[in-house]
Design a protein around this nucleic acid. Sequence first.
DNA 1: CATTTCACCTGGTGGC
DNA 2: TGCCACCAGGTGAAAT
Length: 289
Amino acid sequence: MPELPEVETIARGVHERVHGDFIDKVWFGKHPQPFKTPATRQSRGLEGRVLLAVHRTGKHIVCELGPASKPNRPGDTRPCNQPEQQPEAQWIVHLGMTGRLLVTTPESPVATHTHARLSLASGRELRFVDPRRFGRLEFRDLRRDAAFHAAGEEPLTIQSKPFAALFHGRRMPIKAALLNQKLLSGVGNIYADESLFHAGIRPRKLAGRLTKAELERLRLALREVLQHAIRLGGSSVSDYVDAAGVRGFFQLEHCVYMRTGLPCRSCDTPIQRILLAGRGTHYCPKCQR
DNA sequence: CATTTCACCTGGTGGC
DNA sequence: TGCCACCAGGTGAAAT
């Protein structure tokens, strides 16, 4: 489900609702898959800590956690945020294909495939729901572990030269390279297809064969498409919702993704679907060369 | 080493 | 209605 714009939307929504809050009690479901290491299942690391901030890097949501401490007095449900405070730990959430991170009330019905529930001092609850269990949860104690860093470059901020260098000499199709998180972090199947359409480049074209002009068109198309999608709250293809359960609107602006056989928005040629890197790949045979 | 394929999961859809 | 094949926003291990 979630690529960069969806993860950004969720991280912002979660941050707005929970920063400054305290984690009172933690519940984990019985399936081990969502936990990157078995130790992550121990709630001890999370309980009592203050949620300093929540942000996105690549497709990962990073919750910065302060030291374990309690609100000053009982009923002090929303303690002052202390942004200056140094994080002592991180809770990293990867949503896989079907993961959701939701801020709810404790009374709100618990969806099937809920794998984690964090009760917060304010009375809210932070829930991780993931039917396919491709998502992952990880706890990092920063006194012991290094802070989390996405493997690849941020597509929103990368400059021309380093962008071109990522693809130099590569013999894989450009679409496969865009999906490789070690090169760029955050681009998935939807935004790879959409940005290649806007750049006028065939998904099968070998990455190392792109001209300087094509590389620059691609870099700018990626940035525009991702920024526009963030403004619209991401793409809700089937069931994606943000931290508050609200759908995105960018799916209404898709030009090729899941538009097989429909007329190209630019030239009316039917959109083609092929299989590339094991993924459904959509493009306009006339607009993309 | 670089690149491709496949397994990991559940659920929705469409054909028969 | 039931059964079944196929498809889906991702990733990393195994194979080539």
